[in-house]
């Protein structure tokens, strides 16, 4: 009697289980379908861009679909050559000549300043920090003219110095702010232990703070890379010789240079110009997401 009852109940349980499983599966199918649909809508411009980069100039404006009738590599080849005397090899190299030094000085200066704000007591700290945060609200455009005049007096126009040098003084206040917040979330015990171990302030920074800040520093690198790579106004204002142009300016150049714009080449180079930023983002993704999501340590 009881055996029958228990059998009954297991059959009942398993049917409940199966019902549950089926419902879960349907749920997840719907969920994923929705996510994929929204994702596609958001990504469509990018997909179209990539598709269009293989099309002929005529096809871009005649065909609606993003799938090219024929995969042409010609836009890439032509675009890379450019109508100027330099190829995009030069412009990419230029971009990196700006981006890499800028990232280096940004990381060094911002970490130092954030360390000072987060861990030291000095006269006027609160006011200075408030002023620094306030400068974040200042529109960049307000600073352009005085900065331009200053660099002109330094005789630095048409060099990369005006693009790199400001970052060496922790003017990227957003990064300083981000690092300070991250540091505030790190308990001080480790630093006290390091102090007992005989660290001075700089050793502490190098051996303890920097490793703990790693996720935040990687976020700084990624942001600075993407922003600098995409910066258009800065180079436009300070650079006058074409041989010094970064990718962002060179792209514009290829639009304006000829009467009839070779849109497929412009698009092809745009696609290539996206590659470094996307690559950096994916390379750093794991740490980067860490840095944004958690500003502390476990235990």
């Amino acid at each position: 009697m009881s055996a029958v009852a228990s059998q009954e109940s297991t059959r009942f349980d398993s049917s409940v289980d199966q019902y549950q499983i089926r419902r879960d599966r349907i749920n997840s199918v719907i969920r994923y379908a929705l996510l994929i649909a929204v994702g596609l809508v958001m990504l469509y411009p990018l997909i179209w861009l990539i598709g269009a980069s293989f099309k002929t100039n005529a096809e871009i404006f005649t065909q609606v679909g993003f799938w090219p009738s024929k995969f042409e590599l010609e836009p890439y080849v032509k675009g890379w050559k450019t109508s100027t005397e330099y190829t995009f090899t030069r412009y990419f190299a230029n971009s990196f000549l700006i981006v890499i030094p800028r990232i280096i000085v940004t990381v060094i200066s911002c970490v130092l300043v954030a360390y000072a704000f987060a861990r030291f007591d000095f006269f006027g700290k609160k006011i200075l920090f408030a002023i620094m945060v306030a400068t974040m609200m200042l529109p960049q455009i307000v600073l352009r003219i005085p900065q331009y005049i200053m660099f002109q007096q330094f005789d630095m126009i048409d060099s990369y110095a005006p693009l790199v040098l400001p970052s060496a003084f922790a003017t990227d206040t957003f990064f300083v702010f981000m690092l300070v917040q991250f540091l505030r979330g790190i308990p001080r015990d480790m630093e006290e232990a390091a102090q007992m171990d005989g660290c001075n302030s700089l050793q502490m920074l190098w051996y303890i703070i920097v490793p703990l800040l790693k996720p935040a520093i990687i976020s700084v690198i990624v942001f600075q890379f993407i922003w600098t790579m995409n910066d258009f106004i800065g180079p436009l204002i300070y650079l006058s010789s074409v041989e010094k142009y970064p990718v962002s300016l060179a792209l514009k150049l290829s639009i304006g240079a000829t009467e009839e714009v070779e849109w497929n080449s412009v698009i092809a180079i745009s696609v290539l110009a996206l590659v470094p930023s996307v690559a950096v983002f994916f390379a750093a993704q794991r740490h980067f997401v860490d840095g944004v999501a958690s500003t502390g340590l476990k235990g």
Binding site: M190, E192, A193, M196, L212
Partner: peptide, 14 residues
């Protein structure tokens, strides 16, 4: 010449 053991140990996580 002193060494300290902290309540939450404060080991260097990295």
């Amino acid at each position: 010449g002193a060494a300290m053991v902290f309540q939450n140990y404060a080991l260097y996580p990295h």
